[in-house]
């Protein structure tokens, strides 16, 4: 029983991390059809900024956290201005390849300007200590992660439902041109989408950093690969789908760790991605999106 609770908590905290990242990808995709693979480098930028702040300014963890969030938001908005604006109205494949290009540039910039080796940032370890609830041993980080993801999602939902700009963003995901015809500035809608996406990446960055304690050029690549998959499984462009996909992926992953024998542990990835491919075969557009009609089937 304790074992089950522990694994469920594991799945929740994994899922929370993926959901945060997937949500960031989905909000940008829903509005401009861009699959932002450079999302991982936004996380890495947050990680490097933690190192820079604690080396140059102060080791105060709260300053480091706020600084990383700001850097993640700025990086995200800046990438849109520099790289994604020229391909804003292009087809998704063009956007995807551009994002791959941006991701490569940033990864290699980190490599060139900072170091190819991991850099330690230990200020955030304090978020991660083991506690016991009843007889279940868990880490505070898991609680922080799950709770702040829940808070972030709630705030985001409120913003999208209640504020007039949030309504405009939801409208933009349905018909971007029509929103412009309503006099709402396209640049602002897109910039806010990237800012929100960056903020979510920054949040995820804090938790990944608290767990790993070091940052390297490919820091964000694997988490975002997973988030990407979570998005697709949930239904690309659907925010609810991104959250669902994130938690589902977390569950599959923990499930694999439980089910697979130790000797196959390394193959976890292969099984997770295999399941994902099967889900897509079952529902090519993801779980939460209605089947698309491509005209009449002949």
């Amino acid at each position: 029983m304790d074992y089950a609770i522990q694994q469920i908590l594991n799945a929740l905290s994994f899922g929370a991390e993926y959901a945060l990242l997937a949500l960031g990808l989905a909000i940008v995709f829903s509005i401009m059809g861009l699959v932002n693979f450079a999302h991982g480098e936004i996380i890495a930028a947050g990680g490097y900024s933690m190192f820079a702040i604690s080396a140059l300014l102060t080791g105060n963890p709260w300053v480091v956290i706020v600084g990383a969030l700001i850097v993640a938001v700025l990086t995200s908005v800046l990438l849109e201005r520099l790289a994604f604006r020229p391909v804003r109205y292009a087809d998704p494949a063009t956007g995807l390849l551009t994002a791959f290009g941006v991701s490569m540039i940033l990864q290699n910039l980190f490599l060139l300007l900072v170091s190819p080796r991991p850099i330690a940032v230990t200020n955030l370890y304090f978020l991660n200590w083991p506690i016991e609830i009843g007889s279940v041993q868990i880490s505070t980080l898991q609680i922080f992660e799950t709770v702040s993801t829940a808070v972030a999602i709630t705030v985001l939902v409120l913003f999208l439902r209640m504020s007039s700009f949030g309504i405009a963003m939801r409208a933009a995901s349905l018909d971007f041109e029509m929103v412009r015809l309503m006099g709402i500035k396209a640049n602002r809608v897109v910039a806010v989408a990237f800012a929100v996406s960056g903020l979510l990446a920054g949040l995820a960055c804090i938790f990944i950093m608290a767990r790993r304690g070091s940052v390297d050029p490919t820091f964000g690549f694997n988490p975002v690969l997973k988030a990407f998959v979570a998005c697709v499984v949930g239904g690309f462009g659907s925010l609810g789908g991104a959250v669902l996909g994130g938690f589902l992926l977390g569950a599959i992953e923990v499930g694999m760790l439980v089910v697979l024998p130790q000797s196959y542990g390394g193959m976890k990835e292969a099984f997770v991605f295999g399941i994902v491919a099967l889900i897509l075969v079952w529902r090519p557009n993801g779980i939460l999106s209605p089947p698309v009609e491509k005209g009449d089937k002949l």
Partner: peptide, 15 residues
Amino acid sequence: GLSGIALGVIIVATM
């Protein structure tokens, strides 16, 4: 990392 940057720039610029 220079070659990686160059490749990335080629992709972004072409797109």
